[in-house]
Write a protein that binds this DNA or RNA. Structure first.
Length: 596
RNA sequence: CGGGGCGUGGCGCAGCUUGGUAGCGCGGGUGCUUUGGGAGCACUAGGUCGCAGGUUCGAAUCCUGUCGCCCCGACCA
């Protein structure tokens, strides 16, 4: 390809809309154009990158025996209703774009394809003898994100590779899951990325085991906790840890203490010489289930710890056997609107009476009580007395005379000890999620009645797995991880071009001829080469080639009279003077070492 | 959804407080010079100042509404 025909439009200044470096560089280099909020056009240069990523993905998955297909983007609402996700996806999180056709039939633009593929498989696959099946597509997905941002990182229309596997039993699912994990590691390695696989919450998709693949970058939206030896890594949403015991409270008799106006943990500690770890903090949350029932929750947790809302939501969903649309701390307006007035805020104990809810207009009249296990091990502790200006010192949890569910709803954080090895402590870093693999189990197949006949002639629901890679996000993550002050430094395997030849002065026929000759030879050898044949000053062409991040640059310039080129490595910035034969040898060396 | 900020030529911005009919840099076009790190000079094209109302003799500027974009938060007793 010649730059003169490439529609290369580079910008000197980054548009104000771009905040993080990868977003700025992609716009400045002419890789993407914003069409509207969270919706981008992939311009020719980026499309080349995306195709290279796709190819790496396709080759790797095909080598694992996966089948490629292309599923519809427009999907009927009824299959989503059967899986129980229509409401939570259109009304709850509101993440699915939906519309009506001229007959008034409801359709959704696919944010994911479990429903469609499960229906197809259930219609076509009937016997255990036809299993396992692992089928994938690379497809545009639509999600009406709450807040699209950072360009391709969180956009409303994006390219995703999604794969779905179907199995006759759990063991077979597990073995494919491991296979896919291995495939993902190979894929991301080939794309030249630094990444880490972490334990993850399975979120709205549901299911059992799940891991995310994170590209480590400070601008990442996820917080990851990793043990110092790297053997434990988890998304904070999922992470479990061991907290240190903290300062123990040394009392041997329960009592009530006066704590005038001491509503916060800080106040309480300051005025009475307590430590936060000696206090049981009690919080009220309100949860809305997908049948629109509002459940007040009473949460108890050690005073120096924080609630992990994801864990809490999962726990509640599990207990109620319902999807939870929303979960959040209550505020004063909530209480007012429910006509609940006499909650002793700041002095609540885990045994706060349900009677306080008797007036509630639309809420359930009973608290669902969860207590984090961090509290159970406290021998004695401070907590609210349910009476204004008074707290209690209690020497035994059993003195709290209400039914509690004890569970882990605590947010793990850096500095906590690792559950696998108490000697290791957790460290935090940020990551960009580029891949996610799930063992779904039989959740979708059961709700959609997708079954096969097993060896004994009985109908069983399929065991399912699903596996995603954010292709367009991956491309931007690669930029986030590989750039310098001058621009992008694409990993060779996914660079839009492998090599760029720059003719320093297009009016110099010696330079021009030398470059054209080399260009033809490289094309013949199957090298993905770009020729900058523009009638521009050399400096501008250097700037452009740095900005768009082509890994290797060959200049026909000063040394052309004696038949030499200048070879420049974008990443190492090493420059050499080479004749044509050496250039050809150099290229094949560089490209081969990268590809293997 | 809440809070904050911003909409002026393709991009980055000034002008707005104190109303008088739009300017700078980059980019585009033409010509000459220049030619290895975003060239110089000259000429030139390009803007219903997001949109709709209102106030006024007169609105980019003041008021109201509306649309769009960006950022922060979705967080504790």
């Amino acid at each position: 390809m010649r730059v003169s025909r490439l529609m290369l439009i580079t910008l000197r200044d980054a548009p104000a809309e771009a905040d993080i470096i990868s977003h700025q560089l992609l716009i400045r280099g002419g890789f993407i154009r914003r069409v509207t909020g969270g919706i981008y056009a992939y311009m020719p240069l980026l499309w080349k990158v995306l195709k290279k990523i796709n190819l790496i993905v396709e080759e790797e998955l095909e080598s694992k025996g996966c089948l490629q297909a292309l599923l519809p983007q427009l999907q009927p609402s009824d299959i989503w209703e059967r899986s129980g996700r229509w409401k939570s996806y259109t009304e709850g999180e509101g993440i699915m774009f939906s519309l009506k056709d001229r007959q008034g039939k409801e359709l959704g633009l696919g944010p994911t394809h479990e429903e469609v593929i499960t229906q197809i498989i259930s219609e076509t696959i009937h016997s255990y003898k036809q299993l396992p099946i692992n089928i994938f597509q690379i497809q545009t997905k639509f999600r009406d994100e709450i807040r699209p941002r950072f360009g391709l990182m969180r956009s409303r229309e994006f390219i995703m590779k999604d794969a779905y596997s179907f199995h006759a039993n759990e063991n077979d699912l597990k073995s494919t899951y491991l296979d896919m994990k291995n495939a993902y590691e190979n894929i991301f390695k080939k794309c030249g990325l630094d990444f880490v696989a972490v334990d993850a919450d399975s979120g709205a998709i549901g299911g059992a085991a799940s891991q995310e693949f994170m590209v480590t970058a400070d601008s990442g939206e996820d917080l990851i906790l990793i043990s110092s030896d790297g053997k434990y890594a988890a998304n904070q949403e999922k992470a479990v840890s061991i907290i240190d015991k903290g300062k123990l409270l040394d009392v041997n008799k329960s009592s009530i203490i006066e704590t005038p106006n001491q509503r916060t943990i800080e106040d309480l500690c300051e005025k009475n010489n307590f430590y936060p770890s000696q206090i049981v903090k009690v919080l009220i949350y309100i949860a809305t289930s997908d049948d629109n029932i509002k459940y007040p929750l009473l949460i108890s947790i050690r005073g120096d710890q924080e609630v992990n809302q994801i864990k809490l939501s999962n726990e509640l969903s599990h207990q109620l056997k319902k999807n939870i649309l929303e979960i959040r701390p209550v505020n004063n307006e909530d209480l007012k609107s429910q006509d609940i007035s006499n909650i002793p805020i700041g002095f609540i104990g885990p045994d706060l009476s349900d009677n306080l809810l008797s007036n509630a207009k639309t809420w359930e009249n009973k608290f669902i009580r969860y207590t984090d296990i961090s509290v159970k091990t406290l021998h004695s502790f401070v907590c609210g007395s349910n009476e204004i200006n008074k707290h209690r010192l209690l020497i035994n949890w059993d003195l709290i005379n209400t039914r509690q569910t004890f569970c882990d709803i605590r947010k793990a954080k850096a500095g906590d000890k690792c559950i696998n090895n108490e000697k290791q402590s957790l460290q935090e870093c940020r990551g960009i999620e580029i891949g996610h693999i799930f063992q779904l189990g039989t959740k979708y197949s059961s709700s959609l009645c997708a079954t096969f006949t097993n060896e004994k002639g009985k109908e069983d629901p399929f065991w399912m797995g699903c596996y995603g890679i954010g292709i367009s996000r991956l491309a931007q993550a690669a930029v986030e991880q590989n750039h310098d002050d001058s621009g992008i430094i694409w990993p060779i395997t996914i660079a839009p071009f492998e090599v760029i030849i720059i003719i320093a002065n297009i009016k110099n026929s010696i330079q021009r001829n030398l470059a054209e000759e080399l260009y033809k030879k490289l094309l013949k050898n199957g090298i993905d080469v770009l020729l900058d044949d523009r009638d521009e000053r050399a400096g501008l062409k250097f700037k452009d080639s740095d900005l768009i991040g082509i890994p290797f640059r060959i200049v026909a310039g000063r040394e052309s009279d004696s038949g030499f080129f200048e070879w420049h490595d974008r990443k190492t910035k090493v420059t050499e003077t080479l004749d044509e034969t050496s250039v050809l040898r150099k290229i094949s060396e560089e490209l081969n070492t990268e590809k293997t």
